[in-house]
Design a protein around this nucleic acid. Structure first.
Length: 424
RNA sequence: AGAGAGUUGGCGGAGUGGUCGAUCGCGGCGGUCUUGAAAACCGUUGUACCGCAAGGUACCGGGGGUUCGAAUCCCUCACUCUCUGCCA
């Protein structure tokens, strides 16, 4: 969430930021937060003063009891009766005031970075980079959902049977390819200085709040209601929450973690031809990189993460482009997001396969993730990016690399991991 | 899952109703001493909020309660450990 102090110091900054996101009536929202903040502080001042008075009376009574002056003590006790009831009243008011303020604050999305273009939808995103030539496909080339059937490497029917739509079963060379890619991505990240994490796949509500999935977006996650836990929609949630309520020392920074996890997304209401095959699933595998950085270094880290993802796609020889998301298309918690899209040549469309974001202090403010410098604490910046999400890479790879005889060629970098150079 | 014991500051560990944000030890930081280092000695060392400041308030696993006053008593939840059971 946004820092109250920043809003107080520069309300215009917040209003302009929300405008860029097409947030409805930003001026009113900010005014409301500022007003709630002001009244909360008033309540606290009054409450603190009364508590101070009560504390000093209690101390006096303590003294009197010690010296045996029971009468004076009793008299003083009487004096505290009114004070106490007023304190209770204020306590209730203060708590509710804090709760309402938090509720409102949490409704505000992050303020976009100055380089984020304005815009309403995905149509307004900026294409900032493009790499690779779109392959010319052989006669009779197939979309990936036909290929996987023919090659018998991914089975949606079986997934339907044991779970439901969107839960494919990977088989034989399909399973092997998937595992190979995970290992390749992990090894690349480790070589780039990331430290491997295997986090839990279920998280509690506090974690959901910390990274911004909760409140309000619980509908996107599967929930294990009996235990009040959520299946992770991305490794970002557990890996970033590792640092919830943590004050890092200078020498622990920067934090660079990588983790492979399955991701679970309900994706309610998504239907139609564009979600066929591997295009959109309820469960998929992803390798995620996460960084925690000092504010002055976070944009350099963002560039480094982008370079890392670029390099992965280039090693796989997959044509891709990079988009800078516009204010209207960015995620709620992000200050800036670059999406990577891979070219799926049989479908003849771009498929999002990575999203790299800097959240600045938006998450760390919720997480209470800070560092200490010269005795002072400071909120850190959190960043993350997919490196990479598997299914759409698999889809593009199968389509782009299909041969006239119906086989699929495996890119050279993966062969040491797959143990085969062709699926047929 | 059943029975019992716990949860205190970075760590260890006191504290069972009165000035305790918390004795002490270790660790960290600063200093004295030393050519340098170690040892020794002295000092310092949690977080958040309110306040221009002085200062104040809150926090001893979470929440609630009793009391003029709670780390200390009561209720409740969570977690940890030990034993028994079950199990990859």
């Amino acid at each position: 969430m946004l820092q109250l102090g920043s809003i107080r110091e520069n309300p215009q900054w917040a209003i302009e930021g929300l405008k860029k996101r097409n947030f409805p009536d930003p001026g009113q929202a900010i005014d409301r937060v500022l007003e709630l903040d002001r009244s909360r502080r008033e309540l606290q001042t009054e409450s603190d003063n009364l508590l101070a008075a009560a504390n000093s009376k209690a101390r006096e009574i303590g003294q009197m009891m010690k010296t045996g002056d029971k009468e004076a003590a009793e008299a003083l006790k009487q004096e505290t009766v009114n004070l106490k009831s007023r304190i209770r009243e204020l306590e209730v008011q203060l708590k509710s005031s804090e709760a309402i303020l938090l509720e409102e604050l949490v409704k505000l999305p992050n303020v976009p970075h100055e380089s984020v273009p304005p815009g309403k939808s995905a149509d307004d995103n900026e294409i900032v980079f493009e790499w690779g030539d779109r392959p010319a496909l052989p006669e009779g080339a197939l979309p990936h959902w036909e290929l996987i059937k023919k090659l018998d490497i991914i089975d949606f029917e079986l997934g339907n049977k044991i779970t439901g739509a969107g839960f494919p079963v990977y088989k034989k060379k399909g399973a092997r390819l998937q595992r190979a890619m995970i290992n390749f991505f992990l090894d690349e990240a480790i070589a780039a200085g990331y430290s491997e994490i295997q986090p839990p796949l279920l998280v509690n509500a506090d974690s959901g709040f910390g990274t911004g999935q909760l409140p309000d977006k619980e509908g996107q996650m599967y929930e294990a209601t009996a235990d009040s836990l959520f299946l992770i929609p991305t490794a970002e949630v557990p890996i970033t929450n590792l640092y919830r309520d943590v004050i890092l020392a200078e020498d622990q920074l920067p934090v660079k973690n990588v983790g492979h996890t399955p991701c679970f997304r309900r994706e309610a209401g998504s239907w139609g031809a564009h979600v066929r095959g591997l295009n959109r699933l309820h469960q998929f595998d992803k390798v995620e990189i996460v960084q925690v950085q000092k504010p002055e270094n976070s944009y350099r880290a963002l560039d480094e993460m982008i370079a890392h993802v670029k390099q992965l796609l280039e090693k796989l020889r997959l044509p891709y482009r990079i988009l800078r998301l516009c204010g209207g298309d960015m995620g709620f918690t992000s200050a800036i997001t670059y999406d990577f899209e891979v070219w799926s040549s049989a479908q003849e469309r771009w498929l999002e396969c990575s999203s790299v974001s800097n959240f600045e202090t938006y998450q760390s403010n919720r997480l209470k993730l800070r560092s200490r410098t010269d005795g002072k604490t400071q909120l850190l910046h959190t960043l993350n990016g997919s490196a990479l999400a598997l299914p759409r890479i698999v889809a593009a790879l199968l389509e782009n690399n299909q041969n006239a005889d119906g086989s699929v060629t495996i890119p050279g970098v993966l062969v040491p991991y797959t143990g085969f150079d062709r699926i047929n």
